[in-house]
Structures are given as structure tokens and as C-alpha cells.
Deep mutational scan, measured.
Amino acid sequence: SISSRVKSKRIQLGLNQAELAQKVGTTQQSIEQLENGKTKRPRFLPELASALGVSVDWLLN
């Protein structure tokens, strides 16, 4: 799922939720909701993929 991929990649990069949120241009709460499965397809998906160094396709599939 996107939530597990985001969380595992974030941890692999040594980032906390607030640091990832800053790179993406969103809030820590938005990252938390995404990782908890409350958000399925965030509006900041391209920025998120870029910050994590992955493709949008990788996040979604």
C-alpha cells in the first residue's frame, strides 16, 4: 500500500514525518494521515515521490 511504502522509504532515508513534510511542502499531520492509511491519494503525490527519490508509479503499485 502507499502508506507502507511511504513509511518504509521515509525511515530508510532517516527522515521523520516533519522532515519529510517540509521537503514535500505539506504538514506533518498530512504525512501522518497518509502513513496511517487515512489518505489514499494525496494531492502532493508528485512532490512526495520526488522527496523520497521514487516514482509516482512505485508509490501507487
Rank of each mutant, 00 (worst) to 15 (best):
S1C: 12
I2W: 07
I2Q: 03
S3T: 06
S3H: 10
S4L: 13
S4T: 12
R5T: 05
R5A: 08
V6D: 00
V6S: 06
V6C: 11
V6E: 01
V6Q: 00
K7L: 08
K7N: 05
S8G: 09
S8M: 15
K9V: 10
K9I: 11
R10F: 00
R10M: 04
R10I: 04
Q12P: 01
L13Q: 07
G14K: 07
G14H: 07
G14S: 06
G14M: 06
L15R: 03
L15F: 10
N16Q: 09
N16I: 05
Q17H: 09
E19W: 04
E19H: 05
L20H: 00
L20T: 02
A21Q: 01
A21F: 00
Q22G: 09
Q22E: 12
Q22W: 10
K23C: 09
K23E: 07
V24D: 01
G25E: 04
G25A: 05
T26Q: 09
T26P: 01
T27M: 05
Q29L: 13
Q29Y: 15
Q29G: 10
S30R: 12
S30A: 15
S30V: 13
I31E: 00
E32W: 12
E32V: 12
Q33C: 11
Q33R: 14
L34H: 01
L34C: 04
E35P: 02
E35Y: 02
E35M: 03
N36R: 11
G37V: 03
G37K: 05
K38A: 13
K38D: 13
K38I: 15
K40W: 15
K40C: 13
K40R: 12
R41S: 12
P42D: 03
P42M: 10
R43E: 12
F44N: 07
F44W: 14
L45S: 03
P46D: 11
P46M: 13
E47D: 10
L48M: 05
L48F: 02
A49R: 00
A49P: 00
A49Y: 00
S50V: 13
S50W: 13
S50K: 14
S50G: 10
S50E: 14
A51Y: 06
L52Y: 00
L52W: 00
L52P: 00
L52G: 00
V54E: 05
V54A: 04
S55L: 06
S55N: 08
V56E: 10
V56T: 09
D57I: 09
D57F: 12
W58I: 02
W58D: 04
W58E: 05
L59K: 00
L59R: 00
L59T: 00
L59D: 00
